[in-house]
Each structure stands twice: as structure tokens, then as C-alpha cells.
């Protein structure tokens, strides 16, 4: 039977269903990344403010989010919010909230790092050639920050896609859950389908994340030398 196991992929619309499941997690990732970039830029700027109270709050937020496993955060929102506040959140919505919180922390830290990495004389020499403050930002600071930030933000996307696989554990029907359904349905006709299905998912994730990683790496290299 072993050589036939792979046929389960081509039965009915199984493969399409798997792709559909994968799309669920990718969609969550993309939404969370979009929010994270916007909120992360704000957080990053907030973190460079010298006010000690802002500093303390952002620091605690950052550290807590980064130290907790993302699955714990998912549990906190999915089970915790439901119980404590009686809000019934769907798994998907919980996931978007959690991954936005997490992505914002990661992005905020990256933005802060990029901001403080611009040496002070860059601002000064901009002013010295007669640019206005806004021109200094637009022509000198922001382009430098972007070249530093874009590869890192792209990297965050692959991390996000990998991490959103966790939503399977709070009951979101994504690619692993679809896989379980397919395996269950073919339990007697294709007993070894699990090997092929999970192997397929492994490579589905790989071929989703790999090109994005390559892109990030290429941009990083390209912008490093200039």
C-alpha cells in the first residue's frame, strides 16, 4: 500500500482543501503583520521617547510579550478573555489579536533599533547643508531606516506564518485540522495517508516561507553594501 499513499492527495479536492487550510493561517499572518507594522512603528517611536513612565510601560509590554510563548498568549486571549469578560472570541479573531500584539512588540523593537542606529551627525549634517527638519527626515533619515527595516519586516512575516500554525491548537480549522479530517475520512482506504499528508504540509510551509526568507536575505545583502 505504501506506494499508493500519495494518491490520497489527488482524491477529490483534497489538495485544494489543504491549500485552503494553509490560506487560513496565511491570512491571519498577513492581517497581523499589516497591523503590526503600523502599530510597531508607533510603538518604536514611543520607545525612543525619554519619558520614564512611557519607557516603563513599553518595556514591560515588550518584555512580557516576548518572554511568553505565543501559544500561552493564545490561551490567555482565547480562553481567558472568554471566561473573564464573557466575550466570545472566535479562534481566528483571537489569533489576529495575539499575533498583532506579538508582531507589534517585535516590530516596535526593530523600529526602535533602527531609529537609534542613525548617528546624530546624520541629523546635524543634514541641517548643516540647510535642509529643514522635515527634509532631513524625508531625504536622509527615513530612507536609511527603511533599508534597515524592510528586510527585518519581511523576516517577521515568515516568522509570523510559521507561528500562526499554532492556531490549530485553539481549534481553528487550518491546514493541520483539514489534514486530520482527510486522514480520518480515508482511514480504511488509505491507512498510511498521514505520512503523505503531513509530509505535504511540511513542504507547503517550506515553499511558502522559503521564497520570503530568500527575498529578505537578498534585500539585506543588497542594502548593506550601499
Amino acid at each position: 500500500m505504501q506506494d499508493l499513499g500519495i494518491r490520497v492527495l489527488f482524491m477529490g479536492n483534497n489538495f485544494i482543501r489543504l491549500l485552503g487550510g494553509l490560506w487560513i493561517t496565511i491570512r491571519i499572518s498577513l492581517i497581523a503583520v499589516a497591523f503590526s507594522i503600523v502599530l510597531g512603528i508607533l510603538l518604536g517611536m514611543l520607545m525612543t521617547v525619554k519619558n520614564p513612565i512611557t519607557k516603563a510601560f513599553t518595556k514591560i509590554y515588550l518584555e512580557f510579550i516576548r518572554i511568553m510563548p505565543q501559544l500561552v498568549l493564545l490561551f490567555l486571549v482565547f480562553f481567558g478573555l472568554t471566561k473573564s469578560f464573557g466575550i466570545n472570541l472566535s479562534g481566528e479573531l483571537s489569533a489576529v489579536i495575539v499575533f498583532t500584539l506579538w508582531g507589534t512588540a517585535e516590530m516596535g523593537d526593530l523600529v526602535r533599533g533602527a531609529l537609534i542606529s542613525i548617528p546624530k551627525h546624520q541629523y546635524e549634517s543634514g541641517a548643516a547643508i540647510g535642509l529643514t527638519k522635515w527634509q532631513v527626515y524625508r531625504c536622509i533619515i527615513i530612507p536609511q531606516i527603511l533599508t534597515r527595516l524592510v528586510p527585518l519586516a519581511i523576516n517577521l512575516t515568515t516568522r509570523m506564518i510559521k507561528t500562526t500554525s499554532l492556531v490549530a491548537l485553539i481549534g481553528v480549522v487550518e491546514v493541520l485540522k483539514v489534514a486530520q479530517q482527510i486522514i480520518e475520512a480515508n482511514r480504511y482506504t488509505v491507512p498510511d495517508s498521514a505520512l503523505w499528508i503531513y509530509g505535504t504540509i511540511f513542504f507547503l510551509y517550506f515553499f511558502t516561507c522559503w521564497p520570503i526568507s530568500l527575498l529578505a536575505k537578498r534585500l539585506e545583502k543588497k542594502w548593506k553594501t550601499t
Binding site: 515568515t158 510559521k162 507561528t163 500554525s165 499554532l166 490549530a168 491548537l169 493541520l176 489534514a179 503531513y198 509530509g199 504540509i201 511540511f202 510551509y205 517550506f206 511558502t208 516561507c209 522559503w210 526568507s213
Partner: peptide, 13 residues
């Protein structure tokens, strides 16, 4: 392979 796949999927496999 290792860096572009989630641990969860590796474990399922």
C-alpha cells in the same frame, strides 16, 4: 528546511 517550517508541523510529521 529547518528555518522555514514550524516546529508544530515537524512534530506532526
Amino acid at each position: 528546511l529547518s528555518r522555514n517550517t514550524p516546529l508544530l508541523v515537524q512534530l506532526f510529521f
